[in-house]
Simulated scan of single mutants.
Amino acid sequence: MTLLAAVDLGLKAWAGTALADGQSVDLGLIQLRLAFNPGVAFSLGADLPAGVVLGVTGLIVVALAVFAWRATRTVTLPARLALAAVLAGAVANLVDRAADGVVTDYLHSGWFPTFNLADVFITAGAAALVLVSLTGSDRAED
């Protein structure tokens, strides 16, 4: 989990420097382009005070961490990995937001809002959790 969060935070730091002058890097299906999001997913809550967004997301991350900690005793490895991905993305975005009230985004597709690797971790982890739950393979055998 820590490694995933560190990779995202490192990329955010790089993007903040390398793309600061409005530059973009075309990688084919996706571009690297700097953007800042004061809200949460899809800029929801962008008009709220930064402290409110930080506080609410902080509480959600703590609740998620407690849930993940308790769940690791009873769920399978795929479910644990999925929880770790979600938590890593949430922590990385929270740490980024704590610095200045915004989350640094740097992945732009042209047809979808600009996002970051932490968002990918959260989305992929959540999708994996749904998948393991639907297949019934989320609980470890006793």
Rank of each mutant, 00 (worst) to 15 (best):
Ala6Met: 15
Ala6Val: 15
Asp8Gln: 00
Gly10His: 01
Lys12Trp: 04
Ala13Thr: 13
Ala13Arg: 09
Ala13Trp: 08
Leu19Pro: 14
Ala20Asn: 08
Asp21Glu: 11
Asp21Lys: 13
Gln23Ser: 13
Gln23Lys: 08
Ser24Arg: 13
Leu27Met: 02
Gly28Glu: 05
Gly28Ser: 06
Arg33Ala: 10
Arg33Cys: 12
Leu34Asp: 01
Asn37His: 13
Asn37Arg: 14
Ala41Ile: 11
Gly45Leu: 11
Ala46Val: 13
Leu48Gln: 15
Pro49Tyr: 02
Gly51Gln: 08
Val53Gln: 08
Val53Pro: 14
Val56Gly: 02
Gly58Tyr: 02
Leu59Cys: 12
Leu59Asp: 11
Ile60Met: 13
Val62Lys: 02
Val62Phe: 03
Val62Thr: 09
Ala63Trp: 07
Phe67Gly: 05
Phe67Lys: 10
Ala68Lys: 06
Arg70Met: 12
Ala71Gly: 01
Ala71Gln: 01
Arg73Gln: 12
Val75Glu: 00
Thr76Asn: 03
Arg80Asp: 02
Leu81Trp: 06
Ala84Phe: 09
Leu87Trp: 00
Leu87Ala: 03
Ala88Asp: 10
Leu94Gln: 02
Asp96His: 11
Asp96Met: 14
Asp105Arg: 13
Leu107Trp: 09
Gly110Trp: 00
Thr114Ser: 14
Asn116Pro: 12
Asn116Thr: 06
Asn116Lys: 14
Ala118Lys: 01
Ala118Leu: 07
